[in-house]
């Protein structure tokens, strides 16, 4: 077993143990906090797929997080007000079923990523960063002015979406749902990272000229990676809105994009489990430093600076060393 697999196992056990202990000792707040970390981890895994594997520095991933959130919010809103989502050309009702909400969130945010990626990936470097940021701001202001769904105030949902056989309003049960989804996403991304696509994509990140010389175009690789990335982050958005039973334009703000990027950088760019460590650390800091000072972001900033300057590989680089190339 490598250090990395050991660290992965420890991380997953901790993420499971903390809410279980909190459940036994009746501290629902801690369960909710861990659920947040799990959802943020999924969002970070999404961004990491583009940023870590493809080298695509997107500062607009809040868009996909927000789209996932609004998909959930809008479907639930129509379900709880008993109004149809649309009547023409065919009738669509709202829904409170997670098993419908998730796929819709994944598909819609994936399609948005495909469209935004198709345009942004024509640029590179700092222009790519700026254009993803610009798309993010565009959609952010769009949701602010979208009065049908609450505009600036957002949308409140009375009760969480439903899952067959479970009481989703029970914190530990909702946590379980999110945790299982995290595992599924991790397995999928782990497989993709060592697949044919993963090998070619990560080669493109290192050296586009090399990929072209072996007969492959980087653009298609990047576009697919960006789409998958957006879809995963969209799923996290749907869960996040469900957790809070609330969705608002804040989910799409560039501040959110920055936070998702912090998870990835803290944990270790390009490491499959990196964002899980990053998100967990972020929540831990927010919780512990947030208690000390209202201005805890200053400390977070200092830590981030330290990581970027002294521990380029993030937590994973620090604790597990350089990534093993292949087994």
């Amino acid at each position: 077993m490598t250090k990395e697999t050991l660290l992965n196992a420890v991380l997953l056990c901790l993420l499971l143990a903390v809410p279980l202990i909190a459940w036994v000792s009746d501290e629902p707040f801690i369960i909710t906090l861990t659920t947040r970390a799990v959802i943020f981890a999924i969002a970070g895994i999404g961004l990491n797929f583009a940023l870590g594997f493809g080298g695509l520095v997107s500062l607009g991933h809040a868009v996909f997080f927000g789209i996932g959130g609004y998909v959930m919010g809008i479907l639930a809103y129509h379900a709880q007000t008993y109004t149809p989502l649309m009547e023409w050309p065919f009738a669509v009702e709202g829904t409170k079923s997670m098993l419908i909400v998730w796929p819709v969130a994944v598909v819609v945010s994936g399609l948005a990523a495909l469209a935004i990626g198709a345009l942004s990936l024509r640029t590179t470097g700092v222009y790519f960063i700026m254009i993803t940021l610009a798309f993010g701001q565009m959609l952010y202001y769009f949701t602010i002015s979208w009065s049908t769904y609450g505009g600036e105030d957002g949308l409140s949902i009375y009760v969480r979406n439903t899952f067959p056989g479970l009481n989703t309003m029970d914190p530990i049960q909702f946590f379980a749902i999110c945790y299982v989804l995290l595992l599924i996403v991790l397995i999928g991304v782990h497989c993709a990272a060592r697949s044919s696509f993963g090998l070619m994509l990560r080669a493109a990140k290192q050296n586009e000229e090399r990929v072209q010389a072996v007969g492959q175009g980087p653009y298609r690789l990047y576009l697919i990676a960006f789409t998958i990335s957006g879809a995963i982050t969209g799923l996290a958005g749907a869960l996040f809105a469900d957790l809070n039973r609330f969705v608002s334009p804040t989910m799409l703000s560039w501040h959110t994009s920055g936070e998702i990027m912090v998870f990835v950088i803290l944990g270790g760019v390009g490491r499959v489990f990196g964002p899980v460590a990053g998100a967990a650390l972020f929540i831990l800091l927010e919780h512990s430093l947030g208690g000390l000072s209202e201005y805890w972001h200053i400390y977070l900033g200092a830590i981030l600076l330290g990581v970027v300057l002294f521990a380029r590989g993030g937590l994973y680089g620090l604790l597990a060393g350089r990534e093993v190339a292949h087994d």
């Binding site: 497989c191 993709a192 060592r194 697949s195 044919s196 696509f197 993963g198 090998l199 070619m200 990560r202 080669a203 290192q206 090399r210 990929v211 072996v214 007969g215 492959q216 690789l221 697919i224 190339a325 292949h326 087994d327």
Partner: peptide
């Protein structure tokens, strides 16, 4: 990448079908 990964990359590029997501390419 390792030496082996670099040559596998070449072989893969030549074979095509790079849009496989769940195989273990190595």
């Amino acid at each position: 990448y390792t030496v082996l990964q670099n040559v596998v990359l070449g072989a893969l590029g030549h074979r095509g079908n790079v849009f496989w997501f769940f195989n273990n390419v190595m």
